[in-house]
Amino acid sequence: MEAINLPIKDFQTALLQIDRIKAAEMFKSIYLKAESFEPLEHLIMESLERIGVGWEEGQLSLSQVYMSGVICEELIENHKPKCESSYKKNPKIAIAVLQDHHALGKRIVYSVLKAGGYDLVDFGQGLSVEKIVEKTIEAELDILLISTLMLPSALKVKTVVESLRKNGSSVKIVAGGAPFRLDSSLWQKVNADADGKNGAHVIQIIEKFVEEGR
């Protein structure tokens, strides 16, 4: 099935209306016609990207972004056994919430990345700088995604970066969350390698890192 024929708009509407049943029906129907996972991945990533942009532009809500990601993650999980076995992609990635126990942003990015075929580790939330550094070094990560909610936590990303570099880690660090959305240059001030505006944007960043690493 050509990408151009995919019902992206209808699928996106089903996601935004939190209509799990309709989204699943469309997903299954495309899979049966295409007998391949590729168009499904394209459908999901294109839809989630448009939804992410819609949120950035103030057209859509954070709840819709989250629920869309969860529905897509469920669809991928449910259909994976029927699809190509070599679906997983390569870099070692983990995601963590620094200090805060509010985990929605982390969950959104986690869902979108899982839906996009990435196998990432969830370090959890409410983590101290020391804990994140310890886990990152132990896991020998390629990419660390740090989610924050409050400004003091966002500023602490700088300490995470410094500590990792002191320990000889060259892990790429992507910082995200409300403070980074409100101050678009904050990621540079805390010496992160990039800012993750939304899940789909994080995938683009990861793809760029992977390309640069080749």
Binding site: I18, S63, Y66, M67, H101, H102, A103, L104, R107
Partner: peptide, 15 residues
């Protein structure tokens, strides 16, 4: 409820 039960669980309630 975002503080009482976490945002993810609360969205399940809302929807």
């Amino acid at each position: 409820p975002v503080m009482q039960m976490g945002f993810e669980k609360y969205l399940e309630l809302i929807y």
